[in-house]
Write a protein that binds this DNA or RNA. Structure first.
Lengths: 131, 131
DNA sequence: TCAGTTACTTACGTCGAGGTAAGTCATGCC
DNA sequence: GGCATGACTTACCTCGACGTAAGTAACTGA
């Protein structure tokens, strides 16, 4: 007989005290994504509006494939708008929506934390590894 | 001849204006992780100190394997301490360090944002999908 | 002797994230 | 004709994340 599952069913009161912890969790997974964070922050640094190629240059190390996918998801989620100019060669501009801009503040909080604390984390890691 | 890489080398001035954008990016990838977020928040809700089995029950859907790995990483990063009590059956308690607690604030900022905005995101998604 | 307890680890397998490279489309230019 | 350009998409493949199930250690109590 297989061992019964050890994990408990979802508890609405747990973790985030939200009416829908599943939705919040999914959203967190999304906005916590590396490429999403860097794309959003880069678009902000570029003045809130930029072309595909601008972002490609601004986001260090992203591939066209991932940039395309990330932008599509962000557009679907209402974080930015996509405007196509009927020219040759094509021009496409992405602009942050108010919803996207509202994400900036909490996101920058995390980035600030990372900037301020990565030294401490590094030393903790080497202390752990030496042991 | 293969096409040269389209992406640019890292620009220290870009995205996070940090001396080491790679480190910040790695740290963000870490703290943005779904299981990390939920483990840290759950440990906080449990009063900042809890046993393995408490966390297993508190974090909805996590497997023992992932909880173990997540806790190990958090301990290595200096976010929490692990205390083993030499008893049978074994007891292990995890407690948040000041560094771990300092992460709570920015993290809760993100969670708040997610709670406040997931409705808006959902409607944006269905508008996009209908189109 | 054997089941039950906690906090794991190990083995195994799947599945999806994500990189690389090439293709595409329409057009202007030499 | 053929190449360049910009914003992609597609095909292909690898590799790591992660779930499942079982094993382990060391002791207690029936």
């Amino acid at each position: 007989m297989p061992k019964p599952a050890r994990t408990q069913p979802l508890d609405p009161a747990s973790v985030c005290r939200s009416a829908d912890p599943l939705a919040v969790r999914e959203l967190l997974t999304r906005v916590g994504d590396k490429w999403t964070i860097f794309t959003v922050l880069s678009l902000d640094l570029l003045g809130g509006r930029a072309r595909f190629s601008d972002l490609e240059r601004a986001v260090p190390g992203i591939s066209q494939r991932m940039l395309s996918a990330t932008l599509k998801t962000l557009e679907r989620d209402g974080m930015l708008t996509r405007e196509v100019f009927p020219e040759v060669p094509p021009r496409v501009e992405y602009e942050m929506t108010p919803l996207g801009r509202s994400l900036l503040h909490p996101m920058q909080g995390l980035v600030e934390w990372a900037k301020e604390n990565w030294n401490q984390v590094r030393t903790a890691q080497s202390r752990y590894d030496d042991r």
